[in-house]
């Protein structure tokens, strides 16, 4: 009785999980499938996953021809890279001070960080837009990067990580003659890689995929980020060409997937890094 009950339970569980996975993956599978279909394939009434004529090469060629794909990807890399760089440069010293130094405003700063976590970009979008417009900074990397350089989420995340760092390590560094900035550069940063890598995933994914803010401050293709580029693509004469659109979508999704797979290895390495405690 029980010997058959366990496999049945397992089969049900496995089936449920597979169904869930399929539901999550379905749009992506459909995206890959559509990227390989001709226009007539896409608009047939029957729903087929395998394209009747493999049209991948043509769709990809069209995607590259219709929009400046290289510029879009480059803009994406520059914007995400700059945002991430400044976020880390600002957040690490700030989180270190809040986690390990004693000063009067520490509690107040903690409250401000918590409040900052609650305010979405949409709430401040309009004033920021007006400010950038007044400074004639619309359609620039500055307007794309500047609003995100101070990430309260990063401060909060590093704060939690630094709190777990042993005080003795910092005491030893002070006795060895390091200044507080020296401690940040020589002790905190080299040991903060797990947190930095984890934060990198959140930050880069969020800003690579962000459409809202680039849509507000960028109106020229030269500064368009990948998702914004897709918008131009749709609005252009290829308007109805879903095959090419899906090919373009695939192109801008792949770098993220590749980056994540690479970072995952570093991430796991970072977590297993030990040796602070005896």
């Amino acid at each position: 009785m029980s010997s058959t009950a366990i496999p049945v339970g397992r089969i049900i569980r496995f089936a449920l999980l597979s169904l869930g996975a399929l539901m999550i993956l379905a749009p992506y599978i459909f995206m890959i499938s559509t990227a390989g279909k001709t226009q007539s394939d896409i608009f047939t009434s029957s729903l087929a996953l395998i394209p009747q004529h493999f049209y991948f090469a043509e769709n990809f060629a069209k995607a590259f021809a219709k929009v400046p794909m290289a510029t879009l990807l480059w803009n994406g890399v520059v914007v995400c890279g700059l945002i991430f760089f400044f976020q880390v440069v600002v957040a690490i010293p700030c989180a270190y001070a809040m986690a390990k130094l004693k000063f009067r405003a520490a509690r107040l700063m903690m409250v401000l960080v918590m409040l900052g976590l609650l305010v979405p970009i949409h709430a401040t979008a309009l004033p920021l837009y007006v400010a950038f417009d007044r400074m004639s900074l619309l359609n620039s990397y500055t307007s794309l990067v500047a609003p995100f350089t101070i990430s309260v989420f990063a401060i909060f995340m590093f704060l939690q990580f630094f709190r777990a760092m042993p005080d003795d390590l910092l005491h030893a560094a002070r006795l060895d003659g390091m200044s507080e900035l020296g401690i940040v550069a020589r002790v905190i940063v080299p040991n903060a890689w797990p947190a930095v890598t984890a934060f990198a995933i959140f930050s880069v994914v969020a800003h690579w995929n962000d459409l809202y803010w680039p849509l507000i401050v960028v109106s020229k293709q030269a500064y368009a980020t990948p998702p914004l580029g897709l918008m131009y693509f749709r609005a252009a004469e290829a308007g109805d060409d879903y095959g090419a659109l899906m090919a373009a979508t695939l192109i801008i999704t792949l770098p993220l997937v590749a980056a994540f797979l690479l970072a995952q290895k570093r991430f796991v390495e970072g977590i297993t890094m030990t040796g602070l405690k005896g």
Partner: peptide, 14 residues
């Protein structure tokens, strides 16, 4: 110029 040895040794892990 005071040196200290800590209970946790406090060696730089990296």
């Amino acid at each position: 110029n005071i040196a200290m040895v800590f209970q946790s040794y406090a060696l730089y892990p990296h």
